[in-house]
Design a protein around this nucleic acid. Structure first.
Lengths: 343, 343
DNA sequence: TTCGAGTTTTACAACGTTATACATCCCGTT
DNA sequence: AACGGGATGTATAACGTTGTAAAACTCGAA
């Protein structure tokens, strides 16, 4: 069996607690004693049993990250950034995916999928405010993403309305007048509402009609959904001169359809995506996109969870991460601005 | 504080162990007793403390999955499939990424990054046989991916040589004679060696020269690396009529360069990738690719780890997963429909 | 020498669970 | 009626760690 503190203590001829003190770098240990115990530790190859430590301290050193789907590279990159951030605090990350379904999100938020965690970072899609309200407050929860909840949890996101407005402003600046929005979600909940709102506000501000006939609802968030939505718009006889998609995969799916129909990007239709995933930089037409600071989001999420875990956190707050509009071939034209903010 | 077995026992007026028996579905519990205890469990909202269970049983219910990088959608999709497979066995997945560096892979393989796990699924890139040989045998290890080790661990992969040969055979069948390979890795280790070997064998079998001048080494595995490699080949004055890339992102990066140089895919140069990631289906030219059965790989990996954990596993073995060559526009016999976008 | 105030080490009791060994109960058989 | 044996429930001791409180040192000053 494995070496325990008891074995080390016996080997060094001291009490168990003294060994524990050495292991944990307790202040009051004489250098001589530390040396002696350390020698036994090395000799026996002792390594702490984390299960016992967890039981005793009530901490596991694990935080869970629940994302809608890993297939979307934005979430994959976000996961990577969370893992790195956590690693810097000696935390490891348990990953789960919900498929963006309310049921799974509920299970995750109530801790039924993972019960060994110190904290949870959740990026909800369909979850409603009331779903989270009766959450048994077991471990700290930090929310990520576009949904807008009025709840006592930290929430990290970029300013989706402002970012969407920047994207639409950019398109208008190119002289486009009919800007379609791809990716409003069907059903009662409206996860895309902030981006749709930004689209609407900016058009209105520019004195253009926010034509709801140019808003295409979809069932999912992938390439295929974007393609279907684009087809739907074109088949309905509309011919917008610009498309703003909920995210990059949908934008790329839409561009594929435009290509199949012989429509040129950006000459006939300009396209802007959201998330700035790597694949947008290598298509035949590179994609202009809103680029959230993923590294910052991951870092802030981890820091928030850990702060709350250590009771160092003030009241729950909304934290804004930076973003940037990155222009590429799909909207060749003149420069646009960046945005940012703080809570 | 949280509800423990003790609380439930007091509430139900029985001993702690009886409650434990109910929780663990122990055989000999009368329905009446089970009912009564269950009522208390529900009333108090009891949920087992995994740290304690872990300490007692020596199991955590967690397996770790260590992948080179999540940014590559192949690995992201693989992670999703492992998470789903594990979930079916009441296991959860701790995710780590190594960046494909030997140092990180070593840390992971020796359990220094995560020590609360029952088993480890590792997809190594640079790790050498000897690095794994002196691994302290703490938890079961299952290997994934292209590397070929002669070690007592289960190894799950598709037959890379055969798959690569199928890809090259397909290109030769189109009448292509100069097939470049993109993505051999620099340095002493040769992670891409099996696919290069398949490339070489198939060309030779067809009576064509395996021209090493058409093999492009890269530093990484991403879009940008593929683009660089393609540029390198073209700049060296070579003009192959086909390209076989180590993976899809590299193939897509290469196609972008071909597009920039005014070379048509597939008319001038046919392209085949590897992994069949979703993004290959939505470019201006969709990508022919070797499609490994990711769901099977995830499932087999989880099953292998758990079998070994339960001592139900025979001697370590190599397990082959299925694959398929999916043909798309990048290797179409005749020119694709809508002309290429312009400008 | 004795005392006191710090400093260093120790003994012991948790943390919440499951395994072991034992006690009890309920039967059908003698 | 008493017995034996399987089915069911219980008390207790681990698992390996850390927090608490108390004991045992050290050292300078009375």
């Amino acid at each position: 069996m494995r070496v325990s503190l008891k074995d080390v203590a016996a080997h060094a001829g001291v009490s168990i607690k003294t060994v524990s003190n050495v292991v944990n770098n307790y202040q009051h240990v004489t250098p001589a004693m530390r040396e002696r115990v350390q020698r036994s530790i090395d000799a026996l190859g002792y390594r702490p049993n984390l299960a016992a430590r967890h039981l005793r301290k009530g901490r596991t050193g694990i935080i869970a990250l629940a994302l809608p789907e890993l297939g979307n590279p934005y979430f994959a990159e976000l996961a990577a950034s969370v893992i790195d951030a956590a690693s810097g605090h000696d935390y490891i990350v348990l990953l789960d995916h919900t498929g963006g379904s309310r049921e799974q999100e509920l299970l995750v938020s109530q801790g039924f999928r993972a019960r060994v965690i110190d904290g949870l970072i959740l990026s909800p899609i369909e979850l409603e405010t009331e779903d989270l309200r009766d959450r048994a407050q077991e471990v700290p929860l930090v929310l990520l993403g576009e949904r807008d909840y009025d709840l006592p949890y930290d929430h990290i996101a970029i300013d989706n309305v402002a970012a969407a407005r920047a994207a639409v402003r950019h398109l208008i600046g190119l002289g486009r007048r009919e800007v379609a929005f791809i990716g409003a979600r069907r059903g009662r909940s409206e996860p895309a509402q902030l981006r749709v709102r930004g689209w609407r506000e900016e058009l209105t501000a520019a004195g253009l009609p926010a034509d709801e006939g140019l808003v295409a609802a979809t069932d999912g968030w992938g390439h295929a959904d974007g393609a279907r939505a684009m087809k739907h718009i074109l088949d309905s006889g509309r011919r917008p001169d610009a498309v703003f998609a909920y995210n990059d995969p949908m934008a790329i799916g839409a561009m594929r359809v435009l290509h199949e129909r012989g429509l040129r990007v950006p000459e006939d239709i300009a396209v802007v995506g959201f998330d700035d995933v790597i694949e947008g930089r290598f298509g035949a037409v590179t994609l202009t996109s809103v680029s959230p600071d993923k590294a910052a989001i991951g870092r802030l999420a981890v820091e928030s969870v850990l702060a709350r875990l250590n009771d160092q956190a003030p009241e729950p707050r909304r934290i804004w991460a930076d973003y940037q509009l990155v222009e590429r071939e799909s909207t060749l034209g003149r420069p646009a601005g960046a945005g940012r903010g703080t809570a």
